[in-house]
Simulated scan of single mutants.
Amino acid sequence: MLDGRPDRQVRHRAAATGTPDESVAAALQDAARRAARRGGIAAAVTALEHAAALSEDADRRAELRAGGNLTERSKAGDG
């Protein structure tokens, strides 16, 4: 059902994750970059907030809450 829909798939993974998980946080950050490139800023911010909540590292949480370098990376086409 979610094949070919990575952003939706990662949102489901995040919802099912009850403990911090860096791999899910990283996947959410990637989804945020894709959303920002499409102009979906609200979706990007929501993904970064979820990523921050799932990150185990305090510095990484702060980076994600600050936007996770979203603007610079999405303009460069990174991710």
Rank of each mutant, 00 (worst) to 15 (best):
Q29A: 13
R11F: 06
P20R: 01
T19P: 00
E63K: 11
R60Y: 12
A15W: 01
Q9K: 12
E22N: 14
V45T: 13
L70S: 08
N69F: 13
L28Y: 00
A16G: 03
G77E: 08
A26K: 10
A53D: 08
Q29P: 05
A53G: 10
D78C: 13
D30N: 12
A27M: 03
A44N: 04
D78S: 15
R38Q: 12
S74K: 11
V45W: 08
R13N: 05
H50K: 12
A16M: 06
A27H: 02
S55N: 02
A35S: 13
G68W: 01
A76N: 12
G79E: 14
P6C: 02
T46C: 08
P6L: 01
G4M: 04
G67D: 04
I41M: 10
E49A: 10
R38M: 07
A32L: 04
A66D: 12
A66E: 10
A58C: 07
H50Y: 06
G39P: 04
T46E: 11
G40L: 07
T19Y: 06
A32H: 03
H12C: 12
H12L: 14
G68C: 07
K75I: 15
R38I: 07
A76T: 08
A44P: 03
V10I: 06
A62F: 04
A35Q: 08
E63A: 14
D21V: 05
D59T: 13
S55W: 02
A51M: 01
L54M: 00
A52G: 08
Q29L: 11
A35H: 09
A76H: 13
A27L: 05
H50S: 11
R73V: 14
E56N: 12
G40M: 07
A53K: 03
G40S: 10
A51F: 01
A16K: 05
A15C: 02
D30R: 14
R60L: 09
E49N: 13
T17R: 00
T46D: 11
R13E: 09
R8H: 10
A47F: 02
A43H: 04
R33S: 10
L2Y: 05
D21W: 02
E56Q: 12
G68P: 09
R37F: 09
E72L: 15
E56Y: 10
T71I: 15
S74M: 15
G77A: 09
A35C: 05
A36M: 06
A26M: 09
D7Q: 08
S74V: 14
D30W: 10
G68F: 04
A32M: 03
A44C: 05
G18I: 00
R73K: 14
A52C: 01
A47S: 07
S55E: 03
A66Q: 12
D21H: 10
A51T: 04
H50M: 11
E72S: 15
A52E: 02
D57I: 06
R73C: 14
E63T: 12
R37C: 09
L48Q: 01
